[in-house]
Simulated scan of single mutants.
Amino acid sequence: MGRLEERLARRLRELARSPTPEALHAYRRALRRVRYAKELLGFPAKGEKRLQEVLGAFGDLEVLRNLLLAYLAGGQDLEAQAFLREVEKEREKAWRRALRALDLGLTELP
């Protein structure tokens, strides 16, 4: 499990250096691997599971935002534009929650 934990630590350093949605997603993928390894070996992984959920909330909103942007590129839709504004507000909150959960001292969304 040492290699998985080293990769997780490296992803966290990369995220701290370059706080982007892509870096957060890479960290979440590495975290998932550590969590599954712990569960397989019978170690507690509640912290990893909870952190995955927090990070996943941002990821879900990121995917939804990108889908809305792609949809709106095809034409105007006032309801979709209003929904996009709400999604972006929630995405901002989720980004801050994710970074707070990681305790990086970062809050700004790129």
Rank of each mutant, 00 (worst) to 15 (best):
M1P: 09
M1Q: 11
R3V: 11
R3T: 12
E5W: 01
E6N: 12
R7K: 13
A9C: 10
R10S: 10
R10A: 11
R11V: 06
R11H: 13
L12F: 10
R13V: 13
E14P: 00
L15P: 00
L15Q: 02
L15W: 00
A16Y: 00
A16W: 03
T20Q: 11
P21D: 13
P21S: 12
E22P: 03
E22F: 07
A23C: 11
A23P: 00
H25S: 10
H25L: 13
A26N: 08
Y27L: 03
Y27E: 03
R29Q: 15
A30V: 02
A30P: 00
A30D: 06
A30N: 04
L31G: 02
L31R: 02
R32F: 05
R32E: 15
R33F: 09
R33K: 14
R33V: 08
R33H: 14
R35C: 05
R35G: 00
R35I: 01
A37E: 12
K38E: 14
K38C: 06
E39F: 01
E39Q: 15
L40T: 14
L40K: 15
L40D: 14
L41S: 15
L41I: 11
F43N: 13
A45D: 09
K46Y: 07
K46M: 13
G47V: 08
G47W: 06
G47C: 09
G47Y: 06
E48H: 05
E48C: 02
R50H: 11
R50G: 07
R50S: 11
R50M: 10
L51R: 03
Q52P: 00
Q52V: 01
Q52H: 11
Q52A: 10
E53C: 01
V54P: 01
V54I: 15
L55G: 02
L55Y: 03
L55S: 04
G56F: 00
A57Y: 02
A57W: 05
A57T: 08
F58A: 01
F58N: 03
G59E: 12
D60G: 07
D60S: 10
D60M: 07
L61R: 02
L61D: 05
E62H: 14
V63Q: 14
V63M: 10
V63P: 02
L64R: 11
R65P: 04
R65I: 09
L67T: 12
L68Y: 08
L68M: 11
A70N: 12
A70P: 04
Y71A: 13
L72C: 04
G74R: 07
G75W: 06
G75F: 07
D77R: 02
L78Y: 09
L78C: 06
E79N: 13
A80M: 07
A80D: 14
A82C: 08
F83P: 00
F83C: 03
L84A: 04
R85N: 10
R85M: 13
R85K: 15
E86M: 05
E86T: 10
K89V: 09
K89L: 09
E90I: 02
E90L: 09
R91W: 06
E92K: 08
K93T: 05
K93M: 05
A94T: 04
R96W: 03
R96L: 06
A98I: 01
A98L: 05
A98V: 00
L99H: 00
L99T: 01
L99R: 04
L102C: 05
L102G: 03
L102M: 10
D103M: 11
L104K: 04
L104V: 09
G105C: 09
G105M: 09
L106Y: 04
T107Q: 13
T107S: 13
E108N: 07
L109I: 07
